[in-house]
Simulated scan of single mutants.
Amino acid sequence: MRRHLSLFADPMIAVLILATALAILLPASGDARPAAQGVSNAAIFVLFLVNGMRIARGEIARGLANWRFFLPLFAWVFGAMPLIGLGLSGLAAGFVPPLVALGFVFLGTLPSTVQSATSYTSLAGGNVALSVVGAALINMAGVFVTAPLFASLAGSASVDIGSDAIIRIGLILVLPFVIGQAVQGWTLRWLRERKGEVAWLDRLVIGIAVYVAFSGAVEQGLGAMFSAAGWAALIGLVLIYLVAATGGAWITGGVLGLVRQDRISFLFAGAQKSVAIGAPLAAILFAPEVAGFVIAPLLLYHLIQLMIAAPLAALLADRQRAGQDLG
């Protein structure tokens, strides 16, 4: 059990820290920025092509059939979580730069993360199959839902999401995903036999997107814009968000009357937010000098959720073995 409690139990933590540190020490700026953005866009295209290949159409159909689980999960992820983010964005506005405060709205509109949600559901003794399908469906929906939902909630405060951004989303996210779905009959088995390599592809692409985004923010003076109180407020608000998300997802699963295994699946699929969608989407929606500010709450949230997920899953597993409940 001790290895699950390690700070770096999930390699994604190290990737995010390394990408952020590299952006601070050696940012892609000046003439290097367009080249870095091009590499990031190409990597994102490949990632979503692979995502389309590996999310089986049969799993999507099974998830839609289980509407009693999926519809409340969809409502929680794209309804309750964005509203919590909108409220925290208002609180953050008095402590952090406006674009960072806006990042709480962006964070709220993102789908959940598939890989870690499934892993921690398994560790906690939850319904793994349901977690895989639920998180996959939410991620697929996020490709289409997140950008318009963010634009509607952010309103005039948001960066302009015009036709150019919609075209970029279509070409870099939706098109490769659709192509992947179309060819998955020839590729699905091959990818499933190489889960380890695919997981590292995810991490590499996310690392590139985070590096490019934070490079722009560093060039704009991100560090100098924060006081110590500002950093404390940002971390505190992210912790509040994570507690509200985790507690709310667990309580909602109880109100729905889900059996314990399904309730655990709802908890991890509902409370965790995906940097795998968030960082690439921010790189497409926002200019590099803006994206780093907007994803700051997301990176903190993702790092902290990974740090607490293993201990939480271990606690749930221990309680299940002891025949206890968390309420």
Results as ranks from 00 to 15, higher is better:
P311M: 05
G185M: 03
L16Y: 07
A151K: 11
S40R: 11
L281I: 05
A249I: 03
V183H: 07
G38F: 15
R321V: 04
F48P: 00
L312Y: 09
L71G: 11
N127Y: 09
F78S: 06
G180E: 01
V198S: 01
A23E: 03
D10L: 06
I208H: 01
L83Y: 12
L303K: 04
A209P: 05
L258V: 08
S122T: 05
F104N: 00
R263P: 13
K195R: 01
G270C: 11
A136Q: 06
L5I: 09
L239A: 15
E59V: 00
A244D: 10
N41I: 12
G207V: 03
P297A: 13
A182P: 13
P176G: 03
A322P: 03
A224M: 11
D318C: 05
G236T: 13
T113I: 08
L188W: 04
R57D: 09
V133I: 11
P97C: 12
L5G: 06
A269Y: 01
A165Y: 00
V198D: 01
A23I: 12
A124K: 00
A80Q: 07
A43P: 05
W231R: 13
P176T: 05
G247C: 14
F286D: 04
N41K: 13
M140T: 09
L306S: 03
A141M: 10
